[in-house]
Design a binder for these strands. Structure first.
Lengths: 215, 215
DNA sequence: CAGTAAAAATGAACCACGTTCACTCTTGAT
DNA sequence: ATCAAGAGTGAACGTGGTTCATTTTTACTG
C-alpha cells in the first residue's frame, strides 16, 4: 500500500496518529453508549456526538453500525482474555485452567454492564468469543486432552459450542431465569462437554480460585 | 370476558372464526416470506399483502414484527416436537430418546429453509426452543436421569443450555464453518453435558435411527 | 328488518435511523 | 506558496416499522 521509506515496521506516523485517536474515540464512545442504553438504542448520531465527530465520520472507520458494535465487543473481550491468561499462568492442572476461564467469562458477562447489553446478540457475541478467546481456550483444551484430563476429538469444535453455552447461561442469569449460584453446575456441564465424567468435573469446579488481576 | 350462555368451553364461534383465519393467514404469510428472504428482509407490508390484508391489520394480532416472527417460529417448532414425540414413542433406552431428539432438531435446523434464516437470532430461537420443546425434552432428561443413564442435578437447566448448543452447532453448519458430518460429535457433547461419559455417549450417538414421520 | 354499537380491517402518513455523498478542512510533501 | 491526498462533515435520503382516524363487517336488540 505504501511504497515510502520504511518496510513495514513503523510504516507511517504523523496523521496516522490522528486516525488512531479518532478510531479509538469512536470505539470508546460506542462502548459507553452501548453499555448505557443497549446496542439497539445506541444511535450512530449519539455515538458520533460523544466522540465529538461529525455524523458521517464513523463510516470512514466502520462500514456499519453492526461492525462498530462488533469491534467494541472485541476490544472488551480481548482485555478479559489477557487478564485470564495472566491469572492462570501458574496453574498446574490443565483442566482447571479451562474451568477458571469459562467461569471468569460468565462472571464478567453477568456482572459487567457492558456485556449484559451485548448479550442480546447471541450469535454475534458467541462468534466474537470464538475468534478472540478461542486461541487461548482451544490451546488449553488441547493441552488438557493431551494430559488425559479431557476427551475430545475436536478441541476447536468443543470450544465453539462452549461459547454458545457461555452466552446462554449468562443470558439466563441476566434474565433472572437462572440464579447466578448455578454457575458451578454450568462449569460442570462445560467440563462434561469436554468429556470429563460428572464426579471429576464436580471436583474441578469446586476448587478454590485466585482473583483476577485488575483491569 | 364474555358473560353469555356458555361457561368456557366453546366460548364464542362466529366472527371469532374470522380472527382465527386472519391470524393464521398472517402466520402462514410470515412463514413463507421469512423463509424466502430472511427475517430482516421480510417487511410487514409484504407479509400483509401476501395475506391479502391491510398494512395495519397485522398489528391487531401481533404487537410487533418481532412478535410475529417468534410466533412463526413457535409454530414450526411445535410441529417438529410432535413429530419427534411420535418417532420416539417405542424407544426403550431413555438416553436414546434424548439423543434422537437433539439430532433431529439439528437436522431440521440445518436443512429446512425456514429455520436457517431464523437462526440469525440465536437468543430468540434458543428461548423459543426452550419454551416449546422443553416440556418434552426435560421430561426425557428426567426419565433418563432416574434410569441412571444421565447424571444431572437440574434437567431444566441442562436443556436450557442444550438449546444454545443446538443453535450454535446449526449456525456453524449453515455458515460452513463446521461440516454437517460433525453431528455425531455434537450429539456426544450434548450427552456429555448430561453427564454421560465419552465412550458410552459415543455408543448411544452411533446407534441406527428410525425415520421421522412426514409433516 | 332496521338500528346500533362493538370488533376488525384499513392504508396514508409519521418518524426514527442508518447510511450516503458532495463538499470543506487538514496535512505534509514539493 | 501550492497542491493533492486524506480526513471530516452534516444535510438530506430512503427504508420500513408503527400509528390512528376512518371505514367496513359482524352481532345483537326492539
Amino acid at each position: 500500500m505504501n511504497e515510502t521509506a520504511g518496510t513495514d515496521l513503523e510504516p507511517e506516523n504523523r496523521s496516522a496518529r490522528r486516525k488512531r485517536r479518532t478510531r479509538q474515540a469512536l470505539l470508546d464512545a460506542g462502548q459507553q453508549i452501548m453499555a448505557e442504553k443497549g446496542v439497539d438504542a445506541a444511535t450512530m448520531l449519539e455515538i458520533a456526538a460523544r466522540a465529538d465527530l461529525g455524523t458521517g465520520t464513523a463510516y470512514n472507520y466502520f462500514a456499519s453500525k453492526d461492525e462498530l458494535a462488533v469491534s467494541v465487543l472485541e476490544q472488551v473481550m480481548d482485555r478479559l482474555a489477557r487478564r485470564i491468561e495472566a491469572a492462570t499462568a501458574g496453574f498446574t492442572d490443565p483442566a482447571q485452567v479451562y474451568a477458571f476461564g469459562v467461569r471468569t467469562v460468565i462472571n464478567e458477562a453477568t456482572t459487567d454492564r457492558r456485556w449484559r447489553w451485548l448479550l442480546r446478540r447471541a450469535e454475534v457475541i458467541a462468534d466474537a468469543m470464538y475468534r478472540i478467546m478461542g486461541p487461548y481456550a482451544i490451546r488449553d483444551i488441547r493441552i488438557a486432552a493431551q494430559a488425559g484430563r479431557f476427551h475430545v476429538d475436536d478441541p476447536d469444535m468443543a470450544f465453539r459450542l462452549a461459547t454458545h453455552v457461555l452466552v446462554g447461561f449468562s443470558l439466563a442469569v441476566c434474565d433472572g431465569s437462572l440464579p447466578a449460584a448455578k454457575i458451578d453446575d454450568a462449569v460442570v456441564m462445560l467440563l462434561g462437554m469436554a468429556g470429563v465424567p460428572p464426579q471429576e468435573a464436580r471436583a474441578v469446579a469446586g476448587r478454590p480460585r485466585p482473583a483476577l488481576p485488575p483491569e
